Simulated assay, not measured.
Amino acid sequence: MRQIRFRDPDGDVRYGELIDDGTIRADPIRTGRVTDAVETFEMESIEVLPPCDPSKIVCVGRNYADHAEEMGNEIPDRPLLFLKSPNAVASHGSTVELLTGIETLDHEAELGVVIAERCRHVSADDADGVIAGYTCVNDISNRDDQRRETNWVRGKSFDDSAPIGPVIAAPENVPDDASVRCRVNGELRQDGSRDQFIFSVPELIEEITAYMTLEAGDVISTGTPEGVGPLADGDTVEIEVEGVGTLENQVRIP
């Protein structure tokens, strides 16, 4: 199942399932419209929204050895964590308006883990029980300021710097070696897979919840493979995760 959150033609926020033929079957219970009739929508008739409403995105740095190498960094001995705040979230299909006057704004294709319930102190063995599913994330990075600061607020948490979506895929739909790719204007820039992680999803959940409470709808962005590169005004960026689908955005840099 691939769960989608959307605004219908009447302007109401709805939930549903994205079917293989590209149509959406609305969920009558979550939208409060319990009816015997099955409502379906064409993608062209709706506005895709972020698939969840996170209170925070917990991001993982250097979780691929090849990416650490390309950035000239050592492989960490524990997960390197930083946060993106809700203002960073952008939806599939939207135009992301990025910072002006910045020399390097990079794309980073990542697998996102969506949390199902409020949780703290979750062991790696129990981690599967708090996962709602997986999504695509583009951890857009402002390298100019990231290099100058240690907390990465300017470098990572600016507006529209975390497109997510288009759906939340059930865990069983996303293989252990799921591919994680980025294309810019149709050119393949990144091509990695989940089985290249230094720290697995259960290990990340155990580490993060040892320090902070995760809320339902929070997202863990699990790190990016090698091949990160700059974005320019007018670019079309596609983040593809096997089993989830493709997150697509247009870039605007004023």
Score class of each variant (00 low, 15 high):
M1N: 11
M1P: 08
M1K: 11
Y15H: 15
L18Y: 04
G22H: 02
G22A: 06
T23I: 09
I24V: 12
I24R: 05
R33F: 01
T35D: 15
D36G: 15
V38W: 00
T40N: 06
T40R: 13
F41N: 05
S45T: 14
P50I: 06
P50L: 04
C52T: 15
D53H: 12
V58L: 11
C59Y: 04
G61H: 01
R62T: 12
N63E: 04
A68E: 10
E70R: 04
N73T: 12
N73P: 07
P76A: 05
D77E: 15
R78V: 10
P79H: 11
F82S: 09
L83P: 07
L83Y: 08
S85Y: 06
N87V: 10
A88C: 05
G93Y: 06
S94D: 10
E97F: 02
L99I: 00
L99G: 01
T100I: 00
L105I: 12
A109F: 01
E110Q: 10
V113T: 03
E117D: 14
R118A: 15
C119T: 13
C119D: 11
S123N: 04
A124P: 02
D128I: 00
D128S: 12
V130H: 08
A132I: 00
G133P: 02
Y134N: 14
Y134K: 09
Y134L: 03
T135E: 08
T135I: 04
N138K: 07
I140S: 08
I140M: 07
R143K: 13
E149D: 15
N151W: 00
V153I: 14
S157I: 01
F158Y: 07
D160Q: 05
P166V: 03
I168K: 04
A169D: 13
E172R: 07
E172P: 11
E172A: 13
D176M: 01
D176W: 01
S179R: 11
R181W: 01
R183I: 02
V184L: 10
N185R: 08
N185T: 05
R189Y: 03
Q190I: 00
D195T: 13
Q196N: 14
S200H: 06
V201I: 13
L204A: 10
E206L: 06
T209R: 11
T209M: 07
Y211A: 15
M212T: 13
M212R: 11
T213W: 11
E215H: 12
D218F: 00
E226F: 02
L231T: 10
A232S: 14
G234D: 08
E240Q: 14
V244A: 08
G245S: 08
L247V: 14
E248A: 15
Q250I: 12
V251E: 15
P254G: 14
